[in-house]
Design a protein around this nucleic acid. Structure first.
Lengths: 162, 162
DNA sequence: GTTAATGCAAAGCATTTGCACACGT
DNA sequence: ACGTGTGCAAATGCTTTGCATTAAC
C-alpha cells in the first residue's frame, strides 16, 4: 500500500479554502473538487500565475480537468473576492489570491511578476483625490523593468529612455 | 473642387512628429506615411487607444493600411521611446503617446482608461526602495473602478469587496 | 430531482509571422 | 540600387461560448 505524503497546507491556504466554502454556500454555488484544487494551487504560490499555468499545475491532481474550467473558476473567484486579476503589461491575465492592496513589479524580459513590499511605497490615498466622479475600487502600482535574474544574465533595456 | 478643412495640429502633436523624424533618421528608419499617420493619431487623442482603434481611425487617411502595420509601427514607437504600452486589466495592449510618468484609471464596465492628474498622487520614489535587484524603468499607478458615466448609468460593482 | 458545473469542440479576438512586392533614401 | 517597410494571408496564443453530460445539493 502506497502512503502519499500529504503536504501541510499553510494558514493562508486553509483560510482561503474556508472563505471559499463560506462564500460559495452564501451564493448557492457548488463546492467542486476543481474549485478546491484551483484555489489551493493559486493561494499556495507567489508567482501570480496565468490561467494556463494553474491548469498545468493541477492536471495530476484533478485528472481530466479542462482549461475552460480553470478560466471559469478563476473568473468566479474574482467575482467572489477570493482572487484578483492583476494589471500587467502583457496581454495575458494573471491572478493573485492575495486580494489586499499591494504592488507588483513586472520584468520586461522574462515576464515574471513579483510582489513589491508595500512598506517601501508611500500610501496611496485616493479618497481625497478629485477623480471627476471615478469610483476607485482598488489601485496598485505596477513597476516595469528588469528582474535581478535577467540583469545578471546580461539582458539590458532594449528601448529608448525618454 | 472640394476644400478639406485641415485641422490645426497642436504643439504636442507636431513636437512628437518632429521627434519621430529625428529618431527615425538617427536609427536609419524610413519616414513612411503610415508612421506619420499613426503617430499623429495616437498623439492627438487622450483615450489610450488599442492598436485596433488606431487602425480604424486612420483608414480614411491612409487607404489600404493594414492592421499588421499598425501593430508593427506601434511596437517601433515603443522601442524609440515615442510611445508607451500601458498596464491595464484587460487582455489588450493600449498605447499612450505621453511617455512621462503618469497614472491611469481603468473602468471595469466600459473599459475606458483615463489619465489621473499626477498632482493628486504622492511621488512614488522607488530609488531608495529595496527591490532585491529589480531595475525599475518606469512605474505607474493603475486604479480600477467605475467611471462617472457608468456610475451615472446605474452600473455598480459586480464583485465582492474584500 | 433540480440546478449548477464541467468537458469538449469550436469560435472569437488580439497579435505575430513569413513572404512577395513597394517604397524611402 | 539597396535596405527597410508594408500588405496579405495564415498561424498562433489567450480566452469565451454553446451544448450535452455529469456532479453537487
Amino acid at each position: 500500500m502506497i502512503l502519499q505524503t500529504m503536504p501541510i497546507k499553510d494558514e493562508f491556504v486553509s483560510a482561503k479554502i474556508k472563505l471559499m466554502e463560506e462564500r460559495c454556500r452564501k451564493n448557492g454555488l457548488s463546492l467542486t473538487i476543481q474549485r478546491r484544487a484551483i484555489l489551493e494551487n493559486l493561494s499556495s504560490r507567489k508567482d501570480h500565475p496565468t490561467a494556463d499555468q494553474i491548469y498545468a499545475a493541477i492536471q495530476d491532481r484533478v485528472a481530466g480537468v479542462s482549461r475552460t474550467t480553470v478560466y471559469r473558476v478563476l473568473e468566479t473567484f474574482v467575482q467572489l473576492g477570493l482572487a484578483q486579476k492583476i494589471s500587467n503589461p502583457e496581454a495575458k491575465a494573471r491572478f493573485d489570491a492575495d486580494t489586499t492592496r499591494h504592488h507588483h513589479a513586472a520584468c520586461v524580459s522574462c515576464e515574471k511578476v513579483l510582489d513589491i513590499d508595500p512598506s517601501i511605497l508611500p500610501d496611496i490615498d485616493l479618497s481625497k483625490a478629485d477623480l471627476k466622479g471615478f469610483q476607485v475600487f482598488d489601485c496598485s502600482v505596477v513597476a516595469i523593468g528588469l528582474c535581478s535574474d535577467c540583469s545578471a544574465n546580461g539582458v539590458s533595456r532594449s528601448y529608448q529612455i525618454n
